[in-house]
């Protein structure tokens, strides 16, 4: 059996990559995909711990995360489409009207 630490480490690496995607990329769709990646890495950690504790609750939680992610994607992509309609762009740096 692979030690639990490895799975957690992998999860952390994936999560960091997701964060970097959010912070570095300017394309709204890629930012959104990075968010999905972060959710996925969290799911991986959940499953790992469920295996560790021999408890199905973690897996059920992943199931709910998936449902939320599905909903989030639907709304988020709709938002991106709406923004694109207004700005003719999906560059998040263009949307800075809140600047001081």
């Amino acid at each position: 059996m692979v030690p639990i630490q490895y799975f957690i480490g992998l999860s952390a690496i994936l999560f960091t990559i997701g964060i970097l995607g959010v912070l570095i990329r300017r394309n709204a769709i890629i930012i959104f995909m990075s968010v999905e990646l972060m959710l996925n890495s969290a799911n991986l950690a959940f499953i790992t711990f469920a295996r560790m504790y021999q408890s199905l609750d973690g897996q059920v939680f992943v199931f709910f995360v998936m449902a939320v992610a599905a909903a989030e994607v639907a709304v988020g992509l709709a938002l991106i489409v709406a923004i694109f309609r207004n700005k003719q762009s999906i560059d998040v740096d263009q949307i800075n009207s809140l600047h001081g």
Binding site: V22, L23, D93, N96, L98, H99, G100
Partner: peptide, 18 residues
């Protein structure tokens, strides 16, 4: 002075969070 911090870029705010 402090208004400079408010860049208005969402990535920037996310970086602050992070």
């Amino acid at each position: 002075k402090w208004r400079v911090i408010e860049t208005g870029y969402v990535r920037n705010y996310a970086l602050s969070f992070f």
